[in-house]
Amino acid sequence: MRESAAYVERYLRRRESGAIKEILTPEGVPLRFTVAPLSNRIGALLFDLLFMMLGFIVGAMPGVVMLIGGFGSGFAIAWIGLTFFFVTNFYFIFFEIRRQGSTPGKRIAGIKVIDRKGGVLSAEAIFARNLTRQVELFIPLTLILSLSLMASGSSGLMPMLGAVWVFVVALLPAFNREHLRAGDLIAGTVVVLAPREVLFKDLVQEVRAEDHFEFTQEQLDVYGVYELQVLEDLLRQQDRGDQDALEVVCMKIREKIGWDLVTWVDPWRFLSDFYAAQRARLERGMLLGNRKETK
């Protein structure tokens, strides 16, 4: 019983994490996006680096074949060099233009680039945010490699300062609320979650016409919107077979609103009836201009 209550708690906390980025669409309706957490960003980057590597291997194949076959080693090396240059510099630009701010890696991680002010995501912005990757990603990587190579450390002050600066830039996303990296600052973009929510049935539809529980106004006035939506989440969890949580919550509500505690009621039926009645009550209140947030 106690564990299920903790589960409900945990579930609710998860729903509320993540900074919200609100943009105003040209139609004047604010849209709310959730800023992509660093974990998604890093995941997307790793996938993209993997795809870049694969792309490079496939692209460089003709060069390798030529090299092995012995037709003009010079041309083969040039081919491989050019492939490397194009893949490292234009992979992100190509996909973000083609896929409206998404790359294969971003798609897997469920994130997307949008304009920070709600305008069109322009090609210029995509250029800007990806050209800086040289400084943010590839230099730190080379620096790490070269620093570990000459660990003896005969280097002077300037390289050290440079390294510090580069790492500050590279780690920038970890230190601001919207996880903007330098490229996002320059391009005026932000990376957000692009969830695909599914529209479930309205829970109210499942209330039976006759033989349902009746509640008085006083009983319905005990809770507010927050509690209502917690209840909605819980009822939608039903298919995961978490009967214990239903029991716990059902008992709590019955105590709170002064329902008869002795007779056994089916928790699912009781809670969905309560949900429907509660929602009707609160929505009516909203129309009259008073929204009751919490109990």
Binding site: L31, A194, E197, L199, D202, L203, L228, R279, L282
Partner: peptide, 15 residues
Amino acid sequence: LDRNAIEYLESLAGR
């Protein structure tokens, strides 16, 4: 106050 419907609309409008 149907949270699922509102979240669905938010995500659909965003996409």
